[in-house]
Design a protein around this nucleic acid. Structure first.
Length: 524
DNA sequence: TTTTGAGTTGTTCGA
DNA sequence: GTCGAACAACTCAAA
């Protein structure tokens, strides 16, 4: 038994390895970026069980790199244990993505003569049974910074250590530890801009780990299930639109990063708000499942920005800023775990929300009578994705025009988005509702007509997703109810039959929302 | 401790 | 059509 080669490349560093009791952030004094804590030889493990979770990649995977460097044998495992993530167990769209991502990881590992062992059941008992059958003396994983996962993994860490195993966890999903990025007074940031400025002022995040040259294989592989046995695919095949739209897995992620950095990102700020154009990165599901690491992406784009000039450089910076928004959302959830359901601003607890009913169903189906809203909801259902600008418009419509609680919107997005991410979903919905960090002021009520005209002026987006009104001219496309009978007939539309009348009149809904918000005014 | 300046993404109205 | 102000009051973060 030996530590593998002894060169001292950055690969050997245990970036943000946690030796703490909980499996949250590593708050130990050496947790910061460039700390190298190599494991001494007598601690060097013989067989490491490498537990894949939301880090479905070989590159920039600190737990994998550590295992490959330190152990003589590495056994890779994925355990399907959705009940441990309740009440936010993955939805069907997420599971569809997960299935294909796991298939991809399996292929990548096969190129290293490795195997991904699939198990289903309670994580701790599966890990224990595996550790016993392969005689593992250590278990490594990359952390998930979500409330349910932290609770689960803390228990697992303690139990495995009590069994006499070495356990190490790493940060693979964030630029920095949530506990390592705080205000001068040591509190978590609640406002984005200072969070962002402070982050830019810091040293760069840890460099990406290369794919290990070798991932030492065990003498024999333990029993496992077939991927299909995890039952992640939908029983009814509604995923055709998703197959067309996406290529899950690490190679798909790298391909998308390349395309994005060659072209899209250089015009990001000019096109990001136009849902009819290919102006956004569409990297969110890859980031969620860890098919690309945020630090890897950060370094890649920062280097690109340094080589760029003028507008292109500004645009790349605008995109980097969005990666910091993702970071901000994750840090906030770490520090305020109750916000997945409770408002961050306490005065919102008394807000007079509606609970849902028929209007909720019409919103979900994309039958509100507002073309930009309906287009977004249908894109979501069809592809598991919705353009960011349209997420704001549809969310604002649910919360402010229909006065339905953001919980209903968060649940629907959770079930239907392939990029459903607890931190991002929570921040987004609380922001729209006005109850969150740096939230939209209550009087900021999106006008779905104006938004449509402004950001989809030639209707490319609406015509694609709401084909029954596609023949309307640009002037009437976002306000079909204002078109004359003649214009409607020419476009083949029977309002109220082939396409709905508006569910609620904008001016009325706006006034109603303002007076509802009036009731909780004064403090938060 | 107190003070100060600022805070992702918007809309409407009236000059 | 274009432009600036009002839409509130509060909390946050740093000086």
């Amino acid at each position: 038994m030996s530590a593998k080669d002894s060169n001292s490349s950055s690969q050997k560093k245990n970036a943000s390895q946690s030796s703490s009791e909980t499996d949250g952030a590593d708050s130990s004094p050496h947790a910061s970026l460039n700390t190298s804590r190599s494991v001494s030889l007598d601690e060097s493990p013989d067989t490491v069980l490498l537990w894949f979770r939301r880090d479905l990649r070989l590159r920039d995977n600190p737990a994998l790199s550590a295992a490959a460097n330190e152990a003589d044998r590495v056994v890779c495992v994925f355990i399907h244990d959705p009940s441990s993530e309740e009440p936010w167990a993955p939805g069907e769209a997420s599971d569809w993505w997960l299935h294909h991502s796991l298939a991809s990881l399996q292929e990548q590992l096969a190129k290293h003569d490795q195997k991904l062992i699939f198990r289903a059941g309670e994580s701790l008992s599966e890990l224990r049974s595996l550790a016993k059958s392969v005689k593992a003396d250590a278990v490594y994983w990359n952390r998930i910074y979500e409330p349910a996962a932290i609770e689960r993994d803390t228990k697992i860490k303690k139990a495995l250590r009590d069994d006499g195993l070495h356990v190490k966890s790493f940060n693979a999903s964030l630029l920095f530890e949530p506990t390592a990025h705080e205000t001068q007074s040591g509190d978590p940031y609640k406002v984005f801009t200072p969070f962002y400025k402070q982050l830019l002022a810091k040293d760069d995040p840890h460099p990406a780990f290369e794919v290990p040259k070798e991932i030492p294989v065990p003498k024999g592989f333990p029993d496992g299930l077939e991927l299909d046995d995890l039952n992640l695919l939908p029983k009814i095949d509604w995923a055709g639109g998703m197959r067309e739209a996406w290529t899950p897995g690490e190679p798909g992620a790298r391909q998308r990063v390349l395309e994005w950095s060659q072209d899209g990102v250089r015009a990001y700020d000019d096109r990001r708000d136009l849902p009819g154009e290919d102006g956004v990165s569409r990297l969110s599901p890859y980031l969620h499942f860890g098919e690309i690491g945020p630090r890897d992406l950060w370094h890649h784009l920062s280097a690109l920005r340094r080589k760029s000039r003028g507008k292109a450089s500004d645009n790349i910076q605008a995109f980097l800023r969005q990666i910091v928004w993702r970071e901000f959302a994750h840090h906030l959830l770490y520090h305020f775990p109750h916000t997945t359901w409770e408002p961050l601003r306490e005065n919102f607890a008394d807000f007079p929300w509606e609970s849902g009913g028929e209007n909720l169903k019409l919103w979900q189906k994309g039958q509100t009578g507002y073309p930009i809203v309906d287009a977004g909801m249908r894109e979501l259902w069809h592809t598991g994705y919705m353009h960011n600008r349209v997420r704001m418009i549809t969310a604002s419509f649910l919360v402010k025009h229909l006065l339905i609680t953001w919980h209903e919107g968060a649940k629907w997005f959770w079930d239907t988005l392939v990029d459903a991410d607890l931190a991002n979903n929570t921040l987004g919905w609380q922001w729209v509702a006005g109850s969150g960090a740096d939230a939209a002021p209550y009087f900021r009520i999106f006008n779905p007509i104006l938004q449509g005209k402004k950001f989809d002026s030639h209707g490319a987006y609406v015509r694609r997703w709401v084909p029954e009104i596609a023949k309307l001219d640009d002037k009437h496309l976002h306000t079909p109810w204002e078109a004359s009978d003649e214009v409607l007939e020419k476009a083949g539309i029977k309002l109220g039959k082939t396409y709905p009348e508006p569910l609620v009149e904008h001016g009325f809904a706006r006034d109603r929302a303002l007076s509802a918000y009036d009731k909780i005014k004064g403090g938060g």
